[in-house]
Amino acid sequence: MGIFDYEYLNKEQIKGFNSYKYSCVDTSPLAVYISHPFWNWLVQFYPRTWVPNVLTLVGWGFVMGGFVLESFLDYDITRNSFGTADPIPSWFWLLAAVCTFLGHTLDGTDGKQARRIGASGPTGELFDHGLDSWSTVPFTITIFSIFGHGLYSISGVHLLCVLISTQIVFFTTHWEKYNTGVLYLSWGYDASQFGLMFIYVFTYFVGYEWFQFFVFGKWNIAACMEIGFYACCAGSLVMSLKNVMECKNWKQKKTGWKAAARLSQFTRFFLASVAWATKSPNSIVDVDPRMFFFCMGTVYSNITCRLIIAQMSNTICDIYNLTLLIYLSVIGYSFYQPAHELFVLRISTVAILLLHIHYGVCVVRQLCRNFKIYALDVSYLKNAQK
């Protein structure tokens, strides 16, 4: 067996994937009247040789690429702080808008292309949503980099809470499907993408200085945006609870207590992240915010991918996760040996990143072997037709 041939999925999960049927409801006005009509028109011009998973990967690459580029330009998220003499170049915000648009468009058309050429299936859905779960970090951190650090921004701890609120919305959507069997897409997704593009373009034309004022009292624009994220999170939670309560065919009815117990890993994860950020001996969230958020976001993505797999295969979600155990161990060690905190964060981030990539590649390859398809090639369709 090769390094990427390890089989993470058990027989029960594979069996569940074999009988999986996609069910989705998207009632967002922006999606219904703008996004989907545009995507339906655009996908007609795609060559039929374009692979849906490649579209997904390229779209995710634009989003993550913008985040990586900004990390080089403003690693510690301070370059746009009040009084700075060397802000982030204005061209970057126009580029960020383009990357967001392309990421959103490719993410919206990959499934349509798959259905158009007859390549749709659970592997592509898992590939798509797995990468989406990793995008919560670049979406959140990039937009708040406009405000820099200090007077007209929010603290690193508050930025972590904003990121968690974004992750909760994404997680809740899939937890809802885990119980109901239907993916009710959040209205906040399309709204956030259009909002990000607007703010990036606006910043390109007027400059980051425009955001440096207080709306009322000591509340600046960044703080108001933070409240907006929390409000969207609360609204999504209410709607998800409503959908679950109204569901007449609850998938996890017989094993509901086991499914609920699996929520504990998310609870531990979020609480541990906040505790580390607030009680860190070296204020790690301010010393190396990019690495902190990327590490945390990668662990979150790995946990969420396992939830998505359980939801799609109609099995109980894993309660143990090596990336989470490493993450929690690093937090504990940081309090035990504060002098090594930054070092262990960076080393563990590399280890967690490699583990997450290995997990994702192996799972996709295992599903491809099961369905006798290719992840990044659609030549198998011709063979199937023959």
Rank of each mutant, 00 (worst) to 15 (best):
I352T: 00
N249Y: 14
A351Q: 05
T100D: 04
F194D: 04
V43S: 02
P281A: 05
K112P: 01
L241A: 13
N383M: 13
V98A: 00
S90R: 14
A272D: 00
T166F: 14
R369P: 06
F72W: 15
S348W: 05
F62C: 02
M64F: 15
F170R: 02
F171L: 09
D110K: 05
C368P: 06
L69F: 06
C305P: 03
F127A: 04
Y327H: 04
W210D: 04
G235S: 11
Y75C: 08
A259Q: 08
P138V: 07
W41G: 12
L57H: 13
I227K: 06
L102H: 06
C305S: 11
T180G: 07
S329I: 06
I227M: 12
K386V: 13
K112E: 06
L381C: 02
A384R: 02
D318M: 14
K21A: 12
L151W: 15
Y336D: 15
A261E: 08
L95A: 07
Q193W: 11
G65D: 00
G207E: 10
M312G: 07
F45A: 08
W134S: 10
Y208H: 09
T315L: 02
R290V: 13
L328C: 09
F101Q: 08
L355Y: 07
I373K: 06
N10Q: 03
Y184D: 01
T84R: 03
F139C: 13
I146Y: 14
V157I: 00
L381M: 03
A223G: 09
Y359K: 03
T49H: 14
D5R: 04
Y300K: 03
D288T: 14
K177S: 08
W60M: 09
Y178N: 02
F216D: 13
P281K: 02
W187T: 14
M64D: 15
N321H: 07
C24D: 05
Y8K: 07
T172C: 12
A375T: 13
T304C: 13
N302R: 07
K372V: 12
K11L: 06
V157W: 01
T304A: 11
I143Q: 06
K372I: 11
S334R: 01
I143P: 04
F38D: 12
S81F: 13
K15W: 03
D76W: 14
N220R: 07
I308V: 10
A114D: 06
D318K: 08
I352A: 03
S28F: 13
T100E: 12
V162R: 01
V32L: 08
S35H: 11
N370L: 10
Y200I: 14
K11H: 08
Y300N: 06
E226Y: 15
T349G: 01
C233I: 00
C161L: 01
Y178R: 01
I373S: 05
P29F: 12
C368V: 07
N383H: 13
M64H: 14
N370H: 10
V63E: 03
G181F: 03
T173M: 05
